[in-house]
Simulated assay, not measured.
Amino acid sequence: MPTPQQPVMEIERERKLIQLSKKLGYEFQDLNFLQRALTHRSAGSKNNERLEFLGDSLVNFMVADVLFHQFTKLAEGDMSRIRAHLVKGDTLAIIGKEYDLSDYLILGPGELKSGGYRRESIIADSVEAIIAAVYEDGGLDACRAMVMRLYQKRLENLDPKKMGKDPKTRLQEFLQSRNQSLPEYSIISVNGAAHAQEFTVCCYVEMLNTKFEASASSRRKAEQKAAEIALDEIESRNI
């Protein structure tokens, strides 16, 4: 038997679903698809895992299709690298945050308590599930239009030479293209307890006769940050 509170909760949930639908730029014929896409497995058996599976394939296909037609001179390897970057979890999570998906996720008590609405993997999975929900609700053309909206800015500003390449790789390729010595990385210090260490590294670029320092939670991340700083310096000098 329904409690007096249930209708109010249902009305509020529908209001939020309509609000998100407007943000996404797609009007669902059946809001149940969107609700399922936002429902994490911790909230029950009727969750978004199957939609996520379908959405993963759809976004891979549609991004590949755009790259194939938009960049007609790109080699297969470059298209694969760029697509991998555009559809990876980190990118999907950023897209989800742009639409404030954390405010709409439906999580079980345990995930709510542990801050699951902030977890990037959950946000990324929800983006894939939403893409599939649009496909199920409106068909292939509606789904394609949704993916293009989600990726519009990224596709417009896409630089094939940089996309998907980490800063260390880009710095190395830049120096090699000018027959310059490769950067030298060294650890300056390691601080903190074993479970929360901070690495500070130096990246020496002989071409600039400059050392670039950066700190992060791992040596690899610190080296990437130092390489990024070096690249920014190279760009600022218009080298």
Rank of each mutant, 00 (worst) to 15 (best):
S186C: 05
N179W: 00
S177N: 14
S177L: 00
A194L: 08
V190S: 13
A193H: 06
N191T: 13
T169A: 11
N157M: 11
V190W: 08
R170H: 05
G192W: 05
S177F: 01
A193F: 04
N191V: 09
G164E: 03
Q172T: 15
S181F: 06
E173G: 03
N191E: 14
K165P: 00
I188W: 03
Q176M: 13
E173S: 02
G192N: 09
E173C: 10
D166C: 06
Q176E: 11
P160H: 04
A194Q: 10
A193I: 06
S189R: 13
R178F: 02
G192V: 03
I187S: 10
N179K: 14
P183E: 09
I188S: 06
I188D: 13
N191L: 15
T169W: 03
S181M: 12
L171M: 11
Y185Q: 11
G164V: 02
N157F: 02
L182W: 01
F174H: 11
I187K: 15
I187N: 07
E173T: 02
I187D: 12
P167I: 08
D159K: 15
N179E: 11
G192Q: 10
G164F: 01
T169Q: 12
P160M: 07
A194E: 11
P183M: 14
L171N: 11
N179R: 10
T169V: 13
N179L: 10
